[in-house]
Design a protein around this nucleic acid. Structure first.
Length: 271
DNA sequence: ATGGCGTACACCGTACGA
C-alpha cells in the first residue's frame, strides 16, 4: 500500500496539481488537508471519472480534509466520535477516518495555533490531547492505524531550517513538541525518520521571500503508524517537485510504502 | 523581520494561515 498525504491549500485552486500528482505518484490512498470547500463544492467528478473513491469532510472557506483512494473506503467517521457534534473540537472539519484494505487511516489537519499562549494555541493543544484519546480507542479496535496529515509541529531541531530563530515560536515551541511526542507515546512511529535521520527534509516553506528556493522550511507534515504497520514500511519520503510547480501549495506531499498484501490484512470476523 | 504570499468570501477589504 502506498499512502500519501498533502496539505493542498484549496482543492479547487489546486485540482490540476492533485490530479497531476496522482498520475505521477500513483498512491493507493491520498489524504488531503485544507481543501477549503464544503462537501458539495468538492470537485468529485475528475476523481470518480478515474474510478477513484472519495471521502470528504469539508466546510465553507477554511480547513476541511478528504481521502482519495483507488481502494474502496469503508466506515468513514468525521471528527471526534466520542465528542458531541457541537463540541468546539468538532466544529471545524479537521479529522476524517476511513478504512482501506483493513488499515484505519486518519487524515488530520491540526490547528495552526496562531501564536504561543493564544486561545488558538490552547485549542491546538486540546486537539492533540483528544487525538490521543481517539487513537487509544482506534488501536484497541485494529492494530493497523495510520495518522497522516498536517500536524503543524516540527518535532525536533533537525526539522527546522533555523532552530535557534524558531525556538519557542509557534510550530516549534516546547508545549507543541511535547504534545506531538505525547501523541506518539500512544504507540505511533514517525515513518520518515525510520529511513531519513538527516535534517533538511522539510514539508512546508513560506510563500514569502522565496523560502523554498533557499530551502528555508519546516517538517510539519507527518505519517505516523502503529508499530505493526511501521515495521512493514519500506520507504517514506517527501515529494519536492509539486512545490516547484506553478502556483503551488505551500506544503509538499509526504508518502510511505507499506509491504501489506491481502494475507497481512486483519481478519474479518472471529477466530 | 508580523511581513514580504496566497486562498476564500465578499467587497472593493478582511480573516486566516504557518
Amino acid at each position: 500500500m502506498l499512502l500519501a498525504t498533502w496539505n493542498v491549500n484549496s482543492v479547487r485552486a489546486r485540482l490540476d496539481h492533485v490530479l497531476r500528482y496522482w498520475e505521477r505518484r500513483r498512491p493507493d490512498v491520498l489524504c488531503l488537508q485544507e481543501i477549503k470547500a464544503e462537501d458539495p463544492a468538492f470537485p468529485r467528478e475528475p476523481f470518480e471519472d478515474r474510478g477513484l473513491h472519495l471521502a470528504v469532510a469539508g466546510q465553507k472557506g477554511y480547513h476541511g480534509v478528504a481521502v482519495v483512494s483507488s481502494l474502496p473506503l469503508e466506515a468513514p467517521v468525521v471528527g471526534f466520535p466520542h465528542l458531541p457534534p457541537g463540541h468546539p473540537l468538532n466544529r471545524e472539519r479537521r479529522l476524517l477516518a476511513v478504512t482501506a484494505a483493513g488499515v484505519r487511516v486518519l487524515s488530520v489537519y491540526v490547528p495552526n495555533g496562531e501564536a504561543v499562549g493564544s486561545e488558538k494555541f490552547a485549542f491546538k493543544l486540546r486537539f492533540f490531547g483528544e487525538l490521543g484519546s481517539y487513537l487509544n480507542r482506534q488501536i484497541e479496535q485494529t492494530p493497523a492505524v495510520v495518522v497522516a496529515g498536517d500536524f503543524n509541529v516540527a518535532p525536533e531541531a533537525r526539522d527546522v531550517y533555523d532552530p535557534e530563530a524558531w525556538e519557542g515560536r509557534v510550530l516549534f515551541s516546547p508545549p507543541e513538541r511535547a504534545a506531538f511526542e505525547g501523541l506518539k507515546a500512544h504507540g505511533l512511529v514517525d515513518c520518515l525518520r525510520r529511513f531519513h535521520p538527516e535534517g533538511a527534509r522539510y514539508t512546508w516553506w513560506d510563500y514569502r521571500g522565496g523560502a523554498f528556493w533557499k530551502n528555508e522550511g519546516l517538517r510539519i507534515d507527518h505519517i505516523l503508524a502503529t508499530p505493526a504497520l511501521a515495521e512493514r514500511c519500506e520507504e517514506c519520503d517527501v515529494d519536492l517537485s509539486p512545490r516547484r510547480w506553478k502556483r503551488p501549495s505551500d506544503h509538499a506531499p509526504v508518502w510511505a510504502r507499506f509491504r501489506f498484501g491481502p494475507a497481512d490484512r486483519p481478519r474479518r470476523g472471529n477466530t
